[in-house]
Design a binder for these strands. Structure first.
Lengths: 330, 330
DNA sequence: GGACGGAATGTAAACGTTTTCATGACGAAA
DNA sequence: TTTCGTCATGAAAACGTTTACATTCCGTCC
């Protein structure tokens, strides 16, 4: 029996008798034979693997993202090469280069990545999908979280709760997510009649939220509601309010963004915006696969994944006291 | 210039002129040439990649573990192939087989894995390290979290706080972590004079902690302190106490295990046991690399990673109100 | 009975790299 | 000048698989 026959039997080619196939399979099982991936990909020009280039991510966000990518990849028989936690652009570049020639495509999410970076470090022939990235140009497919829509919806919700004087705590400058969320807030306020707003600078850390909270308390007129651009700042802000015995939502309403796991355990539980991170990973992978299957397809634009407002107690919403999402939690 | 020279120049062989090397490197950079990993590993018999077979993990645990593995792997120029979130043994087996022939070694953490499983699905020649696994035999190196020591230390701490009548909420039966934690509790109580204890069955979920809390409140005599085998159950238990207006730690002290991020945000902040998960991943990888470098080394035993008791307010500890770990948090 | 057709299997080239060995160039020692 | 040694480079084999093409076998049709 020749190697060719074995190859055919194992790869499910039609040109092989049932008897032969069975014999081969039995022998392979007995010898615990596993085809050498390297040799296979050398000739097929396919590695059956995709790479994920990720920044220094923490906690649930990272887990969920990988989970989404992983299940989608395995459903297609693809392996997942992960390279995460690089702190600067050089590390990201090195990781990206190292992946090249080992994967059939890459999923990229990184604050260090812009058009120039990609042009320098990414082979033209390697399919790539950008996740949550500002830049991208027309060469790359992109999947973004609907930061703008989420912030817009949350602001509308706060307005609908009857709050008129709103404060917004921004994220770091030059951060894409942060600026999009700010834009969503701004536009929702602008579209509402009789609403006023003020903006405080933050940097996504708890500490900056705390400072913003103190500043608001010290203001001549306190706002009706505070919308922090992420949950950590909302938590910091809540600490400031608690310290000052300012009741939430009684005196001031509060909302965050991200729905980190802690959010629902705060006192009061935090109203926030939830993103299906796993869906982002899965959608990105599917997009990438589509691109791999049709290398010269149309220039694939940008897709935006919806957010969901999760109403809990901190916004002073009437009626509902348990967010839908909480019931589904494990 | 021949391919041989290019290969030598790029791989840093000494037998090549500085001038030639530079010429090659410039050309490679200009053409954005990246060696094809497949061809390379075909001849070197090395893939420069290691696989991580992980169960369906959530949140920070998963993130930290991967981070630990990833940074250690990149420091050695190794790629990381991740396969996570398989629900049953068959999926894990398929994932393990698929990895074979693409990696130089595997890191395995999975509840489905036992000696028989490994014998069936793992090639004899592939180095492997088991993380947090009960079984392993003498063929495999193992890295475990010191569940026993952590639970022992925590129980001692509760006793040192003056609590005499202790309750323990167990994890699921047949779970290795859970039974080790239980054993630590049991032995610490047995070693203490005048201490009494009771045990309630739990399953690591918040709900079961809540039920246990209710059961304890309904008991003829309430315990001085409750030690839950993980934080989620402690949180559930805390909810039960809060509902019943039972003060923590005033009326009953409470402790958990894992130090999930939420723990420090509870009211009161939860005393718990912290494990350096990233260290586990890193140590496991280093162990694996050692095994890969010396394939016929001694039969490598089991290493245990220490836990740390993180004292916060929930245990009624005297004096310290901020755990060391919290100051280091981002 | 022979030619033909189709299906199953075998043969060998190809994939891109590393590495062993051979070749060539050049300088130093004789 | 010759001879040797050293050092950079080139030539070619090898790695394990897939696949195009060749071969064999067997049954069918004329």
């Amino acid at each position: 029996m020749s190697v060719a026959t074995v190859s055919r039997a194992l790869n499910g080619s039609a040109a092989v008798t049932a008897r032969t196939r069975e014999r081969v399979q039995r022998a392979a099982a007995r010898l615990r034979y596993v085809p050498l991936g390297a040799a296979r990909s050398l000739v097929t020009r396919r590695t059956q693997a995709i790479g994920a280039l990720l920044p220094d991510l923490f906690g649930e966000f990272f887990s969920e993202l990988i989970r989404g990518i992983d299940v989608a990849a395995r459903a297609r028989g693809l392996h997942l090469l992960v390279s995460s936690s690089h702190g600067d652009a050089d590390e990201a570049a090195a990781a990206l280069r190292a992946m090249q020639g080992r994967v059939d495509g890459v999923l990229i999410m990184s604050p260090h990545v812009d058009a120039g970076f990609l042009k320098r470090h990414l082979s033209d022939s390697l399919p790539a999908v950008l996740m949550n990235s500002a830049a991208g140009g027309r060469r790359f497919a992109r999947l973004n979280i609907d930061n703008h829509g989420g912030a817009f919806a949350m602001t509308r919700h706060l307005l609908a709760c009857g709050h008129r004087d709103l404060a917004f705590i921004t994220g770091p400058e030059c951060n894409y997510d942060a600026s999009e969320r700010h834009r969503g807030f701004r536009e929702a306020v602008a579209a509402a009649r009789g609403a006023t707003s003020r903006v405080l600078q933050g940097d996504f850390n708890e500490e900056s939220g705390y400072r913003a909270g103190r500043a608001l308390l010290a203001a001549k007129k306190r706002p009706d509601a505070v919308f922090a651009a992420n949950d950590m700042m909302a938590i910091g802000c809540l600490s400031a309010f608690n310290e000052a015995r300012v009741r939430v939502p009684g005196d001031i309403a509060l909302a965050g963004f991200d729905d980190i796991p802690i959010a629902r355990f705060m006192h009061p539980p935090l109203t926030t915006v939830w993103v299906r991170i796993a869906d982002l990973g899965q959608a990105a992978l599917e997009r990438l696969v589509a691109q791999m299957d049709a290398p010269d397809a149309p220039p694939a634009g940008v897709t935006t994944l919806p957010c969901e407002v999760v109403v809990r107690a901190s916004c002073g919403s009437s009626g509902r006291h348990t967010a839908d999402r909480d019931r589904a939690q494990p």
